[in-house]
Design a protein around this nucleic acid. Sequence first.
DNA 1: ACAATGTTTCAAGAAAATTTGAAACATTTG
DNA 2: CAAATGTTTCAAATTTTCTTGAAACATTGT
Lengths: 132, 132
Amino acid sequence: MAQKRTPPMKEKCCEFSKDLPDTIQKELDKKGGMEGLLARIPDASVLHASSRLHQALADPIRLTVMYSLLSQPLCVCVIKAVVNIADSKLSYHLTILKEQDFIVGEQQGNWIIYSITDNGRQALKCTERLGK
Amino acid sequence: MAQKRTPPMKEKCCEFSKDLPDTIQKELDKKGGMEGLLARIPDASVLHASSRLHQALADPIRLTVMYSLLSQPLCVCVIKAVVNIADSKLSYHLTILKEQDFIVGEQQGNWIIYSITDNGRQALKCTERLGK
DNA sequence: ACAATGTTTCAAGAAAATTTGAAACATTTG
DNA sequence: CAAATGTTTCAAATTTTCTTGAAACATTGT
């Protein structure tokens, strides 16, 4: 089977008109040009994961839940009393926080007790930093 | 005009069935009950603002832009070369980052040069913490 | 096994965020 | 001032996220 030759395609990635502002161009060159710039950006997979973490925190209801659990572990019924929304809605938001390991739930008899995780605590610290 | 008496309405907020797991109930009581719990949760307006901040970071394209600008100030055309998307799309994402004061743009001749702000740098530090 | 309580799951609908392409705007250059 | 370049704005289409209510699941007590 004949080996397929690499087609003579133009490098599609990372092109732009020849001249940029001088200061930009110089600094870019000094730091390894486009190649250097790209090398300093985290992998797409990392950025994707980071964006999911932020996404999970990007809702007032979910932040309210996080802050509630920062006080102490709570069963769903108490959390519900805090946020004052329908059961299924709360469950949806709890799931999103669970998926990012910000909280964990443990069945205890008839109830499920949610607690904040170390990740969750970190996340709230981040949130406060962002705010200031 | 007759003074309207406070109607005998049930406190609608923050109710739940009388019995909770014992450990939860005890800790809740010790910490000021529902009232104490609620008092430790930041204001809705604060949480709303925080969620917007996270929301702005909740997209891989926007994180890529932020990391690009962490290297150095850049004109839109270079950023575009990095993220490889349509102009208008990039502009949309730049606007969102601008709105949260993570980046600023300054016109310089024909170009607009974007830079990361101190808030933006903080935000990326947060992002890294979240990840680890 | 059945009823009661606490919680989650599911599918459908509603709302919000993102993408797209065309048009507009701003600045520089001829 | 017209053409060229760099960037933003706008409205419509698309995609994603969120909400809702009904049904299901799990545990406990009878």
